[in-house]
């Protein structure tokens, strides 16, 4: 089984963020770049699947040269091949177009991604790739097992503590829920040796894409602003009975 894992390089800390008003974008001050934690779980699951069923793992990322570091981390964890698309794209839809094009050249049986990225939290990229490549899809998956040669069985979370077991024909794309495996610390020695694995680098042109293909279609970002503190939260005091009464009155007001 050939497994591709999409992993994103994200700022180490996302609490120290500024709005870049000119570019309508977020700017993170963190000096650290790390593999997005949700994607690490996808990577970890890919390793378990490879150990179980054999095959190879291709780790895919998109970004500038500095994002190569997380690909080395992927090799240290157990990826066989690493691919970087040299493009700076923040919009999730554009990112999914680039990644889908790259995945088409890789030709994996199973594509794994995390459920969301720490910096933009959109949960958009996985499902969008699946739709573009016409792959079977499952979200928030907590277990994967092979089911015959051409399909897999997955358990996915439905929310509210309920799960569903679903059979997916291959090729498929699965968004991995956090906690599916325990994250193993990558021994630094392996990380250093991983630098001997050359990443394959692709430009947008290699994928047949032009900047126009990545321009927002059907929507545009009007502005980016931090949430406003409205200070409208009110604390209801008194006995529980009084608080409930006050709450019901408020609800009546809103209605």
């Amino acid at each position: 089984m050939k497994i591709a894992v999409c992993c994103k390089a994200v700022p180490g800390s996302v609490t120290d963020v500024e709005v870049d008003a000119q570019a309508n974008n977020l700017r993170f001050r963190s000096q650290f770049q790390a593999m997005n934690e949700c994607d690490e779980y996808a990577m970890e699951e890919a390793i378990v699947l490879k150990r179980q069923y054999g095959g190879e793992i291709v780790a895919l990322t998109m970004g500038g040269i500095s994002t190569q570091e997380i690909l080395y981390a992927a090799v240290a964890k157990g990826a066989d091949k690493i691919v970087r698309v040299d493009a700076q794209v923040q919009d999730p839809r554009a990112a999914s177009i680039v990644l889908a094009a790259a995945l088409k050249t890789i030709g994996a049986d199973l594509v794994l991604t995390g459920t969301q990225s720490r910096d933009s939290l959109s949960s958009f990229v996985g499902v969008s790739i699946a739709q573009q490549l016409d792959l079977a899809f499952a979200f928030a998956v907590t277990a994967i097992a092979k089911d015959g040669d051409h399909s897999i069985k997955v358990r996915k979370e439905l929310g509210g503590g309920r799960n569903a077991e679903v059979r997916l024909p291959l090729p498929a794309l699965v968004c991995i829920q956090t906690g599916i495996q325990t994250l193993n610390y990558v021994p630094p020695a392996r990380l250093m040796r991983a630098r001997a694995t050359p990443p394959k680098s692709m430009r947008l042109a290699d994928l047949g894409l032009t900047p126009e293909d990545l321009a927002p279609k059907g929507y545009r970002i009007a502005s980016v602003a931090p949430p406003q503190r409205t200070r409208q939260a009110q604390m209801l005091g008194g006995t529980p009975q009084e608080a409930v009464k006050a709450l019901l009155e408020k609800m009546a007001e809103v209605r």
Partner: peptide, 14 residues
Amino acid sequence: DSVQQSMRSLESRG
């Protein structure tokens, strides 16, 4: 494990 958590935090958050 708990030290691994600390090292991960050191790597990603300093």
